[in-house]
């Protein structure tokens, strides 16, 4: 009897606890990604992030948005975002040749306001062009702590540059986390393991392959 209890109830209790331990996201970013390159070579990634209205208000708080000041204020917001996101590799995980690229650096950062939303765009350039004739390129965009949910709303929000799309295809796979994965991820402290974090469990996966 006790083994039955262990078998049935322990995973239940464990699972429930891990569910409760987790703070779900209250901020959302709609991501658009343009992959820059030509002829099976990828130079960098252009990102356009659209924040939800409530988070946008938070980002713009205390900033002077009067006409003369607006541009400098938005530049400040953009700089602040780049500084903070650098530690988290811009929530962008680029895998190429069985490696995850480290030390991504952003340039051309820009913040605009579109209606209620803050739109943040920047360019992630690679040190050397990534060659895709031997291997695929994988891109994932997620906040590991899952404070913010980030996604490409549709597969069209990941675009290849014209010069790339003639020879390469892209694919966006939705996340399908299993209960085990979720409990496992939630049972872990947020910064415990770089391989399995809550945000990663829910992240979409994209693949770019060239013939």
């Amino acid at each position: 009897m006790s083994s039955v209890i262990k078998l049935v109830f322990l995973p239940l209790v464990f699972g429930l606890m891990s569910l409760y331990a987790h703070a779900h996201p209250h901020a959302w970013i709609d991501v658009q990604t343009y992959v820059d390159g030509e002829d099976k070579k990828v130079y960098g990634i252009n990102m356009v992030w659209r924040f939800d209205p409530m988070t946008s208000v938070y980002l713009l708080e205390g900033k002077n948005l009067e006409k003369q000041q607006k541009l400098t204020s938005l530049e400040e917001v953009a700089k602040g975002l780049v500084d903070n996101l650098k530690r988290d590799s811009f929530f962008t995980q680029v895998s190429w040749n069985q490696e995850v690229l480290a030390n991504l650096d952003a340039s051309l950062e820009r913040v605009t306001i579109d209606g209620l939303d803050v739109v943040f765009s920047f360019y992630l350039g690679f040190d050397e062009p990534l060659l895709l004739d031997q291997c695929e390129l994988g891109i994932q965009v997620f906040d590991p702590s899952y404070f913010i949910e980030m996604s490409w709303p549709s597969a069209n929000d990941l675009q290849l540059s014209d010069a790339l799309s003639s020879v390469c295809q892209r694919q966006v796979l939705e996340s399908e986390p299993s209960m085990e994965q979720i409990s496992q991820a939630w049972a872990m402290p947020i910064d415990a393991s770089p391989d399995l974090t809550l945000g990663a469990v829910f992240a979409q996966q994209s693949q770019i392959a060239c013939q």
Binding site: A23, H26, A27, T55, Y58, L59, L81, N84, L85, R87, D88, D143, S145, F147, I148, I190
Partner: peptide, 9 residues
């Protein structure tokens, strides 16, 4: 963590 907004924002 019990912050409302992510610390990166």
């Amino acid at each position: 963590t019990s912050l409302l907004f992510s610390p990166v924002l």
